[in-house]
Amino acid sequence: MSLILDNMPLFLRGLLATLQIGVVTLIASTIIGFILGTLAVTRSRLLRLVVRGYVELLRAVPLIVNIFFIFFGAPLFGLQLTPYAAAVIGLSLWGGANGAEIVRGGLLGVPRHQAQSARALGMTEPEIFIQILLPQAMRAIIPAFAGLLTLLVQSTTLGALVGVPEFLQISRLVVERTTVMQGIDPAFQVYAFVLVIYFLLCSTLSFASRWLESVLAARGGSRKTGTAKSLLPETVS
């Protein structure tokens, strides 16, 4: 236990980096997700197909391979990326694909008659999207994005494998340093501690997501607009 306390400043720094990456990638995923998710419900078959391809590709390739590709593959395109940048880009592209699915599902969950009756009132397509479809879809989208944050925070650990000094990477360093300098292997205590911290963090976020879902569902009345759970991939992969 004293080992954990001695290294607390280090752990805190790692934890901060983890949270930072989580929030930054959530923002990027939201932007990508809303753009692609909206394109995925347009009338253009070509656009729908392009989004579909992007989403399917990013969901078929393991996230870690995706991050390796960004990190090791960037020089192929004449770019030199820091581990931090590579991890953020890799996670954002992945989060964006899932975000696109969330937004698409949310928009498709709004009953078709809503758009039709807005059209019958003479509203234009952009007006229908902003005034009618999006506000209703948000009820399903917001909790799903909160859930996505949980998955993103969990997947920041993959950044450790390209050397991002986030929580897991810092913990690895602590284990190594202690083993070398004090001759004892503290892997059990340190990784148990890391597991507990992640558990507290992620279950709080999961709880917040479920809470948001129930609050928004109660406010939204009886109309079913799809639940957040069905929109979100259940796992990181």
Binding site: H113, Q114, Q116, S117, A120, I132, Q136, G220, R223
Partner: peptide, 10 residues
């Protein structure tokens, strides 16, 4: 006017 009213629930 539609069969299922189609008011905007939000």
């Amino acid at each position: 006017v539609f069969q299922d009213y189609s008011l905007f629930p939000h």
